[in-house]
């Protein structure tokens, strides 16, 4: 991976400009997506209000331990990616060689944990399906499947984007400008992470 050269070069004015441009676009995008998921949570809260007892009695709930492990894994994944991007972003300074190699390790761990989360999510569904609970079984199932489906779609998009960024990073094609693309993909991943935490709190904690 040949990103250490990017880390040592100081960003030119134009590169800073591009960075601000794309980050601003990403902020608006996240704002928009917050409204999209906000709508889903609003629906969750309203419908939950409609049911006297929550979670409804006598149904099989998704596995709490599995969901907790998945949450921790996703947070760790975000953390790893965050550290990698921060290291690549740091300009100049000594010892950039070790820094770069540890950044690569963080990146690999972050993406790997992302895939692990996807597997756990699939297990959560498989568990419920095995217990005979389907999306059409009731309101709880509607909400659980519906909201996690939409979230999972974003996990898949995020993972594909991360892989795409990885290919770019390892081919060494990325200068500082392209690094802002990588950093934006990671911002999106953090967003996916936060949405999951809210889902987790809604379904498993409160």
């Amino acid at each position: 991976m040949n990103v250490s050269s990017a880390a040592t070069s100081t960003l030119s004015k134009e590169e800073v400009r591009t960075r601000v441009d794309v980050t601003l676009g990403m902020i608006f995008f996240i704002g928009s997506w917050t409204m999209a998921f906000g709508t889903l949570f609003l629906s969750f809260l309203v419908l939950r209000q409609r049911v006297g007892v929550w979670p409804p009695e006598g149904i099989v709930l998704p596995s709490f331990p599995l969901a907790t492990v998945a949450t921790l894994i996703l947070v760790a994944s975000s953390l790893g990616l965050h550290r990698a991007v921060r290291a690549w972003d740091a300009k100049g300074g000594g010892g950039e060689r070790e820094q770069a190699s540890s950044a690569q390790r963080d990146w690999a761990v972050g993406v790997g944990l992302g895939f692990a989360f996807a597997v756990l999510q699939a297990l959560l569904w498989a568990d419920l399906l095995a217990a005979g609970r389907f999306p059409s079984s009731g309101l709880y199932e509607s909400l659980f499947y519906g909201l996690t489906w939409v979230h999972a779609a974003h996990v898949v998009i995020g993972l594909l984007a991360l892989l795409w960024a990885w290919i770019g990073l390892s081919s060494g094609r990325y200068g500082p400008n392209r690094l802002s693309t990588v950093s934006n993909i990671v911002i999106f991943w953090h967003f996916v992470d936060v949405v999951w935490i809210v889902l987790y709190l809604g379904f498993f904690v409160f």
């Binding site: 608006f28 704002g31 928009s32 997506w33 409204m35 999209a36 998921f37 906000g38 709508t39 889903l40 629906s43 419908l47 389907f134 999306p135 059409s136 009731g138 309101l139 199932e141 509607s142 909400l143 499947y145 519906g146 489906w149 939409v150």
Partner: peptide
């Protein structure tokens, strides 16, 4: 557009789920 179109986007997703996957939102 950026703030409020996503609201109908999500509503459409829920409607599609109700119609296709048997959910009951």
């Amino acid at each position: 557009n950026v703030l409020f179109v996503p609201v109908i986007g999500s509503a459409m997703l829920l409607l599609i789920m109700d119609r296709v996957f048997g959910t009951t939102f």
